Simulated scan of single mutants.
Amino acid sequence: MALLHRAELRPSKLDLLATWLPGRDWFHGPAGGDVTRVAAYRFDDPAGAVGIETMLVRVGDGPVHQVPLTYRDAPLDGGGDRLIGTTHHSVLGRRWVYDACGDPVYSAALASAVLAGAGQAEEFFEVDGVRERRAPSMGIAITGPAVAAPPAVGALRGVVDADPTVIVTDAVELVVPRRLVASDRPGAATLTGTWDGQPDPLPLAYATLR
């Protein structure tokens, strides 16, 4: 479950991405265009400490890009090169926003989703002590080989920044497409997504045991 707050972020997540995205080799879109949110999905951090959200965004009339993010209340050790920026949350205070592909909490959550069907986190707003469920903006599902229980992914060994981005851990290799198009990786468990305007599932991630 993801407990959300009706809060103000300064700068906003989209403002942070507008600065960060143009510097990525895998980004395709007009320079200086507005970043718009297409859809998003979240995973749970079992420890409840790290926010995990994957945003689908578009700049101008460019393609849809997938940007996994983690939100932390303190800097990630060794994660300086993955820092997208910091923002002030009107309820939670200062938050460090990271490219989640370099965050071990994201790797573990993604592996659980792709290999064991953990699914996306239900989202709730808490208003005057009452929790209100927010309907998801997209659907996710898994296809291909799966395991009975989430694997212990182990340490994060490396990240290949490209499209797709490849995340290597002790036990699992994860592949995260940045631009979402129809494709297939035989033998890999696959996380797919659908959203308004995209009724046909597109791959969001692949996972294979090492």
Score class of each variant (00 low, 15 high):
167 I>G: 00
115 L>V: 02
156 L>E: 04
60 G>A: 07
36 T>N: 05
127 V>D: 11
191 L>V: 07
71 Y>W: 11
110 L>C: 07
152 A>K: 03
96 W>V: 12
138 M>N: 02
175 V>A: 09
121 A>D: 02
188 A>V: 02
134 R>K: 14
148 A>H: 10
133 R>A: 15
139 G>P: 01
128 D>V: 09
167 I>V: 14
196 D>H: 14
61 D>H: 12
68 P>C: 13
145 P>N: 11
86 T>W: 05
68 P>R: 13
19 T>F: 14
67 V>I: 14
169 T>I: 05
128 D>P: 02
70 T>M: 10
197 G>V: 05
111 A>R: 05
197 G>W: 10
130 V>I: 15
89 H>Q: 11
90 S>A: 08
67 V>M: 08
152 A>F: 01
154 G>T: 01
178 R>S: 12
109 A>C: 11
207 A>N: 08
168 V>K: 05
29 G>I: 08
132 E>Q: 15
170 D>H: 03
166 V>L: 11
70 T>I: 08
5 H>G: 13
190 T>D: 05
11 P>Y: 11
80 G>H: 06
41 Y>L: 04
156 L>R: 00
207 A>Q: 09
152 A>N: 09
133 R>K: 13
106 Y>K: 10
49 A>E: 15
163 D>G: 08
15 D>Q: 14
168 V>L: 13
1 M>E: 14
180 L>T: 07
3 L>Y: 12
57 V>W: 02
17 L>C: 03
129 G>V: 11
20 W>G: 05
166 V>T: 12
153 V>A: 00
103 D>G: 05
74 A>D: 13
28 H>K: 14
59 V>D: 02
32 G>N: 04
74 A>G: 14
35 V>S: 05
176 V>Y: 11
35 V>A: 04
188 A>T: 02
141 A>R: 03
86 T>Y: 09
35 V>K: 00
27 F>Y: 10
191 L>I: 07
94 R>W: 12
28 H>Y: 11
173 E>K: 13
177 P>E: 14
167 I>A: 02
62 G>E: 07
209 L>K: 07
52 I>Y: 02
51 G>C: 10
